[in-house]
Design a protein around this nucleic acid. Structure first.
Length: 549
RNA sequence: GCCCCUAUAGCUCAGUACGGAUAGAGCAGCGGUUUCCUAAACCGCGUGUCGCAGGUUCGAAUCCUGCUAGGGGCACCA
């Protein structure tokens, strides 16, 4: 049993005996900010003061006296301040934790409160009409880790990437490439008004000239646009897939919008809405009654030109997802899409799906800093820093870690200079170094042929720095479940830095491998446990845990 | 105008879900630590109108209301 559970149980039992009805999980218990306030503290006496009509300190004193505290879990209990009850962990409990962490290994920190429910995370889903930008890099890191966190707490998870390989944008890509293609061949074709200006379009055109020559120049413009669009599209999608692979994101499904269109799934939605009276015709367009489901205005499904809107196809896409049997569908979108949430939620409801099963997180923007200055990016001028360039410059580990350091709802400043520094200013190395350092200690012990007793005597662990490390490790399962539940992967980076710090402190104060074989054995166990937790945490983020640096 | 996000130390940020004690880290600055398992480490020193104003409460960075500033969004684009 966990010590916090034990304490809650004792308090709840005692209070129930007094006639106060309180369940274990309602007993307030928190980790105090100040070390002098103990390892755990309860404000229960203050909260009960009113109902019991007694002074909080008096209630606290009695509670402390009347309950017989098992010294295995609780080394000391005291009343402090206005009526807090402060607890310190028993040494036995802390020592046992070391053993439990080692036994659990990769399973340490995992739980099953997800109950095997199926959840899908859809993220990145960048248009294949251009290169991936740094926002996609953030989304990729965040989505991947949120998915992993949910796996760790007992969900069955799928990662999906939606490929918008159809519609207006793709036509524009075809026209843009065609124009560049023609001019490479010395021919003239006007550049489309809202075409894509980036250099990558010229690169695509050049590649196509190299592989196909002037084959497309002779065909009718419309056919050329179509065929070039397809070729360019596949090249872009392949690039995106390579980028994700290099970034260590493994998508289960790359879902193509064109598949939906081919199987006419959007038309089925249309028919369904028409049948249910959820759509109507106005000004030559077909509209969805989104206002019936809380959106601020009705939305167009089919334009006056008879073309399905992105929204309509997206509704079909979401219906398709739910038909695949997910209990929860979770989308990660960019900040420019937040206005889109009410209408998608409305649509999901209109399809008869419980709205709680559809969740959206908005990932805020990324500001790149170089030399302390904001790097200006303009999509129109084709001036952007691609995800690929950034990764090449700073490395996958650093990029992932940096993108995970902030709350997803906050814009993130990515300091390229800091990311490139291999020094103490860079938090990634700080954490990785702790892991490498541990591996080095273990190697050293092995090389020296340290002879260890069969079973380490953990009673020899008694230094405050040793216990501090254990206490920090004990926080890990809560960090994982909290990060998953509240969609806050940054808790993991913050935590790993704290764990690394507490290990570095321990390392500095005490020798692990010494002439005292028993003590060495005990400390090697502790050290191995820290390695487990650091490795688990880094693995969760898909950041490498180096054995030497 | 309406909606979303953000505002905490010189800088970058935790802490806000579920209100608790003297609001914490890292970096930058200054000073120190290595005959010893990696100094990519450790230790010490300073700083706060928690954006502002009210309210609720024994207690508010945290909850409520109203403001202010910055960013983003409000398409028959995606």
């Amino acid at each position: 049993m966990r010590a916090d559970q034990y304490i809650r149980q004792q308090i709840a039992n005692y209070l129930n005996g007094l006639g106060v009805e309180i369940s274990e999980d309602k007993v307030p218990l928190e980790r105090p900010k100040l070390a002098e306030h103990g390892d755990l503290a309860s404000s229960v006496a203050m909260e009960l003061a009113r109902t019991l009509r007694r002074a909080p300190r008096q209630i606290a004193e009695e509670l402390v006296q009347k309950i017989s505290w098992d010294p295995f879990y609780v080394a000391s209990v005291e009343v402090a301040g206005p009526g807090f009850v402060n607890f310190r962990y028993g040494a036995g409990y802390l020592r046992q934790a070391v053993r439990e962490i080692l036994e659990a290994g990769e399973a340490f920190g995992r739980s099953d409160w997800g109950g095997g429910k199926r959840i899908q995370f859809e993220f990145v889903s960048a248009n294949p009409t251009g290169p991936l930008n740094v926002v996609s890099a953030r989304a990729a890191a965040v989505g991947d880790v949120l998915a992993s966190l949910h796996e760790a707490v007992g969900y069955k998870v799928e990662r999906e990437y939606y490929v918008n390989d159809a519609g207006r944008q793709v036509r524009l890509l075809g026209q843009s490439v065609s124009s560049r293609y023609m001019s490479l061949l010395g021919l003239d074709e006007p550049f489309p008004e809202e075409g894509y200006h980036g250099d990558y379009v010229k690169d695509l055109a050049r590649e196509i000239v190299e592989s196909y020559g002037d084959k497309f120049a002779k065909m009718p413009a419309e056919q050329r646009h179509r065929e070039l669009a397809q070729i360019a599209l596949e090249k872009m999608i392949a690039q995106h897939q390579e980028a994700m692979k290099a970034y260590r994101v493994q998508f289960d499904v790359w879902f193509r919008e064109s598949k939906l269109r081919e199987s006419k799934e959007h038309e089925k939605v249309l028919a369904y809405f028409a049948e249910k009276g959820l759509s109507y015709e106005k000004d030559g367009a077909i509209w969805f009654r989104a206002t019936q489901f809380g959106d601020e205005k009705d939305r167009v499904l089919v334009t006056r030109e008879g073309e399905p809107t992105y929204f309509l196809v997206d509704i079909a896409y979401h219906r398709n997802k739910f038909e695949r049997g997910f209990d929860i569908v979770h989308d990660l979108w960019g900040p420019d899409h937040h206005g889109y949430i009410p209408r998608m939620k409305a649509a999901v409801q209109a399809l008869g799906i419980e709205p709680e099963r559809f969740q959206v997180s908005i990932i805020q923007q990324v500001n790149l800093l170089r030399g302390g200055e904001l790097v200006k990016m303009s999509k129109r001028a084709g001036q952007i820093i691609e995800m690929k360039e950034l990764i090449e410059e700073v490395g996958v580990d650093v990029a992932r870690f940096f993108f995970l350091m902030r709350r997803i709802s906050a814009p993130l400043d990515f300091d390229i200079d800091l990311a490139k520094k291999q020094s103490d200013e860079n938090p990634v190395y700080y954490v990785q170094y702790a892991h490498a350092r541990i591996c080095n200690i273990l190697r050293y012990a092995e090389e020296r042929g340290v002879s260890l007793p069969a079973e380490a005597n953990l009673e020899l662990l008694r230094e405050p720095e040793e216990f501090d490390v254990v206490k920090k490790m004990l926080e890990y399962p809560d960090v994982i479940s909290g990060a998953a539940r509240f969609l806050e992967p940054h808790r993991l980076t913050t935590y790993l830095q704290e764990l690394a710090a507490s290990f570095h402190r321990f390392y500095h104060e005490h020798r692990v491998v010494s002439d005292d074989a028993d003590l060495t054995a005990a400390r090697l166990e502790l050290t191995r446990a820290v390695r487990v937790v650091l490795a688990n945490g880094l693995k969760m983020m898909n950041v490498t845990a180096p054995e030497r640096m």
